[in-house]
């Protein structure tokens, strides 16, 4: 992808990036604030949530999140 293309489509990509960030950060805060997980540990979940975009937070919220 060349620069011209990037410049052309960047505004269209920004909402996507914002969504990914919003989800990732919500999940990250939750991981740090609720240290009881159904399985796994804090480091593992931080890595999953931060480095696997979209899917990571979904897996955390559906499978990894402990009871309140």
């Amino acid at each position: 992808m060349d620069l011209a293309m990037l410049r052309e489509y960047l505004p269209l990509l920004i909402p996507l990036v914002i969504l990914q960030f919003a989800l990732g950060i919500t999940a990250l805060i939750h991981v740090l604030r609720h240290p009881a997980y159904r399985f796994g540990n804090k480091v593992m979940w931080v890595i999953i949530v931060v480095f696997i975009q979209i899917i990571g937070p979904i897996i955390y919220f559906t499978l990894g999140r402990g009871e309140d």
Binding site: L19, I54, I58, F61, T62
Partner: peptide, 12 residues
């Protein structure tokens, strides 16, 4: 967080 997941995924 199910609402959040649903909305974000469908928005993405």
């Amino acid at each position: 967080y199910k609402l959040l997941i649903l909305l974000v995924v469908f928005a993405v």
